[in-house]
Amino acid sequence: MLEVRNLHVSVGDRKILDGLNLTVKDGEVAAIMGPNGTGKSTLSYVIAGRDGYDVTEGEVLVDGVNILDMDATERANAGVFLAFQYPMEIPGVATMTFLKAALNAQARARGGKELQTPDFMKKVREASQKLQIPQDMLKRALNVGFSGGEKKRMEILQMALLQPKLAILDETDSGLDIDALRIVADGVNALRAQERSFLVITHYQRLLDYIKPDTVHVMARGRIAKTGGPELAHELEKTGYAGFVGEAA
């Protein structure tokens, strides 16, 4: 599904990713943990196609196709989805309007038909009920004045509606209360499928109790420093990142 090969990324003079290699197989749920400022969000932005990052070396392949030449729209239409660590607020654009624009754009890009409004409404209603998102929130401007937890739930709603191939969740658990964490995790688990992969970036073992990863990667200093199974997350809980930061130095 996803193959990142020897990825080097800088912003200005600053090198952030330094020869990162990562493989996520079809249907796999991979977790990435790592200290603050180590480049996890940068990796997710580079995969999603945000401007402002210099990829000086390396490749990012999705289903064998290098996506680095595509713009963000094309990547989304190719099935890449990023649940943002800090979702943007879009004043004046009603959440419903936005959801419709996104769903229709992806349908068009894939040569499908746009949804009729009643079908669209039904779909959104069902998906938002599962995530316990109140209907009146959908009438409000996207993310404007939403609480931290509401924004995260809104990201998962978008994922549920867009049904991506590769979903990157960047600290989706931060800002969620205990109940919301379970609701969001259930939402993710419901989408687990052989044809869909997840890259779950988190600082906390707790999320991984709900979303059971197949693999856990430790990222430090712009690379994957260690890869293991779910037990690695438990280990980190005890030992912290000191060993990795040291090792890489």
Partner: peptide, 14 residues
């Protein structure tokens, strides 16, 4: 630009 990126990341053309 950030808002545009967010919308693009959902498949909406620039």
């Amino acid at each position: 630009d950030d808002q545009i990126f967010y919308l693009q990341a959902r498949g909406i053309p620039k």
